[in-house]
Structures are given as C-alpha cells and as structure tokens.
C-alpha cells in the first residue's frame, strides 16, 4: 500500500464541517423515532412536547442554528489509517483547530472550562476536544464525532459488577441509573451501554454506543434482544417526554460489548438526551 499525504488544513475543514452539521441537522434515525413516538404517545402533554421537538429540528435545520444551546464537549473516535502522513501540521492540532472553527464560526456555545476544580475559566473556543485514536491499516482517516450535552452526561454512571451478578445485575444497574436520572436528562433519552473491557473501556464503549444510530442493533442477537427489552422496561417507567409523563422515556437503547477479565463485568451507562447528535466523516 502506498503512503498517502493529507494536508492538515483538509482535516481542519472536515472536522469543522462535521461539528457544524451535527449541531444543526439531527440524524434521520432520531427524527423518525420522534415522529413515530409522537404518533404513539398516549399522554397529551407528551404528544405536545414531542411535536415541539420535531418543530425545533425543522427550525434548527432550516436556519442552521444549533438544535440545543448545549452544543456539548466535542468527542471524536478516530480510525487513523497507518499509511497516512499529515503535511503542514499535526493531526492533533488540525483536529483541535477544526473544533475551534466550528464553535466560533458556527455560532455554537463554548462550554469548556480550563480546569475542573479551581479555575473553571471558559476556554472561549470549546477546546480541547477529546480525541480517541485507533491505528488501523489503510489510507483513510475515519472520524466519528459526537457533542452530547452535560444535562444527560451528569446522569451517567459506571459500575464494576462481578461475574456472579450476571444478566440480571446488568439489567438492574441500567434501570437504576435511568430511574435515578428521571426527568433531568431531557427525555426521551438514548441509553448507551458499555459492557466488558476494563473500567475506562466500559465507559468509552458506552459513549460510542450513544453515537451509534438507534435503528441499528447489536450484532449478537442476545444483546440485540436485551436492547429491546430494556427499551420496553424504560418506557414503562412513565417519565415520558420532558419528564411530564407518557410512554416515551427513551428513543433507543444501544449496547456495545468487549471481552473482559475473568474476575469482572464492568458496566457503564452513558445517558444521552433526545438531541442525540453524531456524525461520521471519512477523509
């Protein structure tokens, strides 16, 4: 395979477009789930809220303004082809500059503070973005981006379950996290679940699960079934749209899995609001 050279400016441009687009235009998976939920919702107030969310997507998309004022902290999962060489800059700086340009030029909110405990001073350009890079073979760079808000991020949780907890333990933990979150994370939510790996791997899987379209299922039919069952149980909780009651508490449940240690069964639940913004680009 030949070495391919990519200009750093092209990466910046692609990342900028990725974050602007995802903040203005919701994915088809979410929009059709909202439309279906609006048809089926039995609570009048819930139906009304869903109608407003659909209208909000139409306004955001046509005016090219953010769907939600919380335009998140930018997260990127990168598959970096091992035959790619960057010229005129570094990959890291090119990505950060793309995020910076998207948030400044795209009228997106700057929500990142420099230090978590002491200073908490806004960095004014929404950087740094969080970048997870995996080296794969090939001549392309594939970037999956997300920008979830923190209302739902704050409702997320990781638990180090042990093997004897079994399927029931996983189910119980997920439902406990969702029940505790209640009306706060802007329901109807998307529930991203990471199971396996290590402490941090489970959390990353859960994040990645929130970035998967909700009209796709886990490839293993046992997990795909669990996704469906959990969705049904969550919608039976009655929180409904905006937590004002109804049968639509979640739009989707996505599970991602990974092999784990003989002694463990880590589970992470990353809750995402109904404005589940994610998009992929290939350079």
């Amino acid at each position: 395979m030949e070495i391919r050279t990519i200009n750093a400016a092209d990466i910046t441009e692609a990342v900028k477009k990725l974050f602007m687009d995802m903040n203005y235009h919701i994915g088809k998976d979410i929009l059709s789930a909202l439309q279906k939920a609006q048809q089926e919702e039995t609570s009048p107030i819930g139906k009304n809220v869903l109608g407003q969310l659909i209208e909000n997507h139409a306004i955001a998309s046509s005016e090219e303004v953010p769907i939600c004022q919380d335009t998140g902290m930018a997260v990127l999962f990168v598959e970096y082809g091992d035959h790619v060489v960057i010229e005129n800059g570094s990959f890291e700086e090119a990505v950060q500059e793309g995020v910076r340009r998207a948030y400044i030029d795209g009228y997106l909110r700057k929500s990142v503070v420099s230090d978590p405990v002491f200073d908490r001073i806004n960095t004014r350009d929404n950087t740094p973005a969080i970048i997870y890079t995996q080296i794969v073979s090939g001549q392309e760079i594939r970037i999956l981006g997300g920008c979830k808000g923190f209302g739902s991020e704050n409702m997320s949780s990781v638990k180090m379950l042990t093997p004897s907890a079994g399927l029931e333990g996983v189910r119980q933990f997920v439902l406990d996290v969702v029940r505790y979150a209640g009306p706060n994370p802007c329901p109807p939510i998307v529930v991203g679940i990471g199971i396996g790996g290590t402490f941090e791997k489970a959390a990353m899987l859960a994040k990645k699960a929130t970035l998967r379209p909700i009209d796709t299922g886990h490839p293993d039919e046992r997990y795909a079934r669990l996704e469906k069952e959990l969705l049904e149980e969550i919608n039976g909780m009655g929180f409904g749209p905006a937590g004002l009651g109804g049968i639509t508490t979640a739009l989707g449940v996505n599970i991602e899995t990974f092999p784990t240690h003989i002694a463990g069964m880590p589970v992470a639940v990353n809750i995402c609001c109904h404005a589940a913004r994610h998009q992929e680009t290939v350079i």
């Binding site: 303004v65 004022q69 009228y107």
Partner: peptide
C-alpha cells in the same frame, strides 16, 4: 436557568433552552 448559544447576525439571541434546575 439558561446559557444561550451565540446569536447569529440578525438574531436577538442564539438558541436558548433551559438547563437542569437541580
């Protein structure tokens, strides 16, 4: 309880929905 997004030219304010009250 709100932290609005920046206003585009011609807009009074950017998107400005509520944040979690708790």
């Amino acid at each position: 309880y709100v932290g609005p997004a920046p206003a585009k030219p011609g807009h009074a304010v950017g998107p400005a929905g509520p944040t979690s009250s708790y």
